[in-house]
Amino acid sequence: MNAIETDDLSVTLGRLPILRSISVTVANGEAVALMGTNGSGKTTLVRALLGLIGFQRGSIRLFGTELAQFSQWSRIGYVPQRAEIQYPQARVSEVVTTGLLATRRLFRPRTRTQLAQISAALEQVGMADRAAHPYHRLSSGQQQRVLIARALVSQAELLIMDEPLAGVDLGSQTRLAEILAALKNQGSAMLIVLHETGPLESMLDRQIVLRDGRVLPPYAAPTTSHGHETQPRPRTPLLPGMLDRGR
């Protein structure tokens, strides 16, 4: 069974077509990068998959269930591109706790198991010592790691991440790559929006590249080795338009 399956998906915002006839799949246990230039429709596709925006044509199935009927949201962990936590004094642990709400029963305090899950998720992203810290006092990279912990805390089977490496320092990127690789080995499926594969290169099974709201044919990464490399080199598809922007 596929974790994600879209068929002929089209999304129009206002009168502007953003996604045109998108048919993609992410199999269980598969790690897929969703790539493309700014404005190609990556974030729109992610938001459509999560039911945050509607679609005009086609279908979305999550774990084999039509999106409209899907209710097992604890199976999905979402890391938004940038999260504005509206309460500036929120503790890191409070932010991560919200990740458990898909399964947490109403009017019940957190169980010991859930507290352990929160600690484990923070440990995974190297933020365990900041659990009581106010979220807004963290650097943007640290905030991103907290949001990843929030997605990890429910032990989701599918992680959908919108540029999880944006604003995260290189050391943390490498650490996150290790975390995500471990999760993948445990069977988690992933759809990760990226501008560049960077340290995630080795754990990715394949790439889906969007351009102007359409899926481009698979990119054949160059395979010629380059004499002086000290570690595996990220192979970033060079698309028209990427040349014009910064990193």
């Binding site: 945050l52 949201w73 999905i76 919200t98 709400l101 898909a102 009017f107």
Partner: peptide, 22 residues
């Protein structure tokens, strides 16, 4: 007080709360 976690989630990050099925 009883729904504090849910209400906090909705008030702090509405989009994310939707992805939790709240």
């Amino acid at each position: 007080l009883g729904l504090l976690p849910q209400l906090f989630a909705v008030c702090s990050d509405e989009d994310y709360a939707r992805t939790l099925g709240l």
